[in-house]
Nucleic acid binder design. Structure first.
Lengths: 184, 184
DNA sequence: GTCTATATACAGATAGAC
DNA sequence: GTCTATCTGTATATAGAC
């Protein structure tokens, strides 16, 4: 079993993805890992500390998943589909992307957490941009790799937001259709 | 000056667009309209009641704005640009779409409010779909009107989410570029 | 590192006077 | 319709024992 600090990060991540950062309380986290809230404060003195740690861990895990896609998939459509699938997984568990949630709640974050949050979005857009760049010859689109990266990251974040409310995945599916339209 | 009930709805809408539904309190609303929190409860017995009322008002106002676009603009690009501009206005005030925020916080909503929220998304997608359908001859895309509607609504919701964090409007701009790519 | 206990603040909601 | 006053629950956070 992971150490307590890691356990707390994990249940916090889960809670934020489903209910949001403001809805998550130290007491609830404590109950779920089997300690008292003061022990959570030992590992993360303030909620701001926890927010930043969780955003950074999530960004690292997401970045690792992107590396995995690079290793497993070769074509443009396969890579973008695999990226789409990361979001589909989240929605299928009735969650949304942790950083999409944090973006909605950005007014509750301090400057350090906000900087970490920006890091998530730029990391993700950079990966997408490099995918579109390295498959430029397959692309039948007047849009730049950077524009496509922005369109897809924003689009999938928004798609999860709405698909979760509608209990479906019609918008993520529409983005898979868009991916195909780019190479057809 | 609007009546108290309307005033409360207006400051609640503003607060939710910026800070979120959970962050908004009856006390804060009361202070801003110059009454006590018990008076807010007179107009909206529970927070659930307020949530639903605010979502419905917002949907009505948004729908009116879409009617205005239909009256003012004629081409596909003009209409979709005007739709994009609705979201750009929101971000320029450091807010996001009220219903985008509510979608992130959907776990804090009761069934009535959730139904109203779905209404916003279907109304918006229906309008987009009818725009794409009625300009089908201009479109150089293999995507259906329905798919395009889903792509644009989700995309603009996500774009505002990220653009607000980045204090820019690069993602909304990318969607304007996408609009042009559809007819080029 | 975890606990008990507590300080302090604020949340949604209601009773009852005016 | 609005007020004062209050109930009850919960939040973040800390002090100090073990």
């Amino acid at each position: 079993m992971a150490d307590k600090r890691t356990q707390i990060e994990e249940v916090a991540t889960q809670a934020i993805k489903r209910e949001g950062f403001r809805s998550m309380s130290f007491r609830t986290l404590a109950d779920e890992v089997g300690v008292k809230s003061s022990s959570v404060h030992y590992h993360f003195p303030t909620k701001d500390d926890l927010a930043e740690a969780v955003i950074r861990s999530y960004t690292r895990a997401f970045s690792d998943a992107l590396d995995g896609i690079d290793r497993r998939e070769s074509s443009l459509v396969e890579k973008i589909d695999a990226f789409n699938e990361l979001f589909a997984d989240v929605v299928s568990h009735d969650d949304i992307c942790l950083c999409g949630m944090m973006a909605a709640e950005v007014s509750s974050l301090n400057d350090s957490a906000k900087a970490a949050l920006k890091g998530f979005f730029s990391t993700s857009e950079e990966w997408l941009k490099s995918v579109f760049q390295s498959h430029a010859e397959e692309l039948k689109s007047p849009l730049s790799a950077e524009e496509l990266a922005r369109i897809f990251l924003a689009g999938l974040e928004g798609a999860t937001l709405i698909d979760r409310v509608e209990s479906g995945s019609d918008r993520l599916a529409a983005y898979r259709a868009l991916t195909r339209a780019l190479v057809a």
